[in-house]
Design a protein around this nucleic acid. Sequence first.
RNA 1: GCGGGCGUAGCUCAGUGGUAGAGCGUCACGUUGCCAACGUGAAUGUCGUGAGUUCGAAUCUCAUCGCCCGCUCCA
Length: 557
Amino acid sequence: MAEQADNPNGPYGLMEKIVALCKRRGFIWQSSEIYGGLNGFWDYGPLGVELKRNVKQAWWEDTVRRRDDIVGLDAAIIMNPNVWEASGHLSGFNDPRVDCKETKHRYRADQLGVIYAYDVPEGEDGPTQAELHFAYVQDNAESFINALKKARKYAKKVGLRHFNDTPPTLPFLSAEFEGRLDYVVGPDVDVPGTLTEPRQFNLMFPTYVGALADEDAKAYLRPETAQGIFCNFKNVLDTQRLKLPFGIAQLGKAFRNEINPRNYTFRSREFEQMEIEFFCRPEEADQWYEYWRDLRYQWYVDHGLVSDKLRLRDHEPDELAHYARACADVEYAFPFGVSELEGIANRTDYDLKAHQEHSGRDMSYFDDELWAEKASEFAADKFDGDKKAAKQAAAEAKSKAPYRFVPHVIEPSGGVDRATLAFLCEAYTEDEQPNDKGEMQQRVVMKLHPRLAPTKVAVFPLVKRDGMPATARKIHDACRSAGLASFYDEKGAVGRRYRRQDEAGTPFCVTVDGQTGEDGTVTVRDRDTLDQQRIAADAVVDYVRAHTGGRMAEHIA
RNA sequence: GCGGGCGUAGCUCAGUGGUAGAGCGUCACGUUGCCAACGUGAAUGUCGUGAGUUCGAAUCUCAUCGCCCGCUCCA
């Protein structure tokens, strides 16, 4: 598959082929297409919805149903707006931006400073604002020195008094510059007036709760599912008889007003997440982080991303967000570039503590097992029989670590749509297979992992007579009754039917032929190899189930 | 958000001011005994949308929406 990156049509040609197939076969369509679409929104067609459901189901089974230490959750999409205050999303999503009309640079307004040039005219008491001021990027020495040079030159030119080596600086967002940007020189230009007024880029989706759309009713569609988990941490802890370490998993939609949705479904404004918050003791966080990082990477490998396009990349320390102690990305080399499928982060106790502070609710965990072990150390006889002192010491000890503490959390946060897209890209294969005359012909086949394939088996009568359709239908019905996604087709030549299933990614085709009537066997044709073997018709269900339903992940104990 | 390119049948695209096209796919009938077979026939278009210029617009102009590329952004 690696050679596909060197496809003569180029990487974008490859992506276009994949997109065309997805549209043609009914995997993914643009949302509200008949009205011209809507940027950043997508609809999953009949094949796409099965594929995506299978991705989610595989994740849910592997992370929740097959483990004792993780439970599920389905929180509301709209939460109390204070949640986003606490999580930092409201401020984080509201970075005002400033564009330089000259250089096309974009700056974060809150990261710009301005050298405030002023004068003290003779005979006046206080300083007077000068005409020009000089913006620079904070925490960037070069930018500051550059602005300082420009400011000195200007001061000398117009004869500002008292201008020295340490001129006052003000934040760009100060009231002093409001409506006066015509007099501010941008960081990378020499003339004033090239900076735009700061614009708010609100990446949160606002909405209103209740019939009256006033500001008091303002709420937001969640930008991530994680906060629903943190907010329910105590509920889960209090009702589920769980001990650390344990996790809460959630699948669900999230919404971000991305500035520039692009690359098919990769960056959508409405998307689905699969997130785990795994709570543990602070001292065990590092080892759980490594455990989850490796396990989640392996999950993608186990579901078909076996090429070297899948990568696990540890973030550099300077790349880490302020709340994360460690972070790794599971990345995939899409035709349009290497991009993130899932991030695994050690978020420490940042989130629970933030909610503890903002909500006023206690988010700590008390380790009664450890206490039971150590309680004897606080018996009265350890305090010379002073019961009161013993009780006080015990109460004090119970209120802090190692007995009571706010758990740390490891967050494996994956994008369902991104994973689905990666599976589609990896599966897209062009090979050459002989036709009925033995001539080699190009074939397009979606080599989806059988567990993820939208249809598990297609059942055909070889020809539409001699009772073959009726027998094939019986097999089809048996497959469906067994819970297998089965597809019946009797139209046209069987070769064409096979090839159609190849494009849909169906791993097996079962064909009823003349011999079926004699010995009760059918052929099973393998999607990837085109090999056929005869098996008993009443063994089809077991055969398909054995080859498609099972979890491939043997690493999970 | 900025700059460039593009938008015609389900898909890929041709069509530069004068009757809306091709290939593939889809459907029907016949044929067809295992890999996109063949024959015959058929259906499918707000030419992205809206406005303007013109006797006449898929074609020219403007706006708008969407897609692609670069920049930006990615808490």
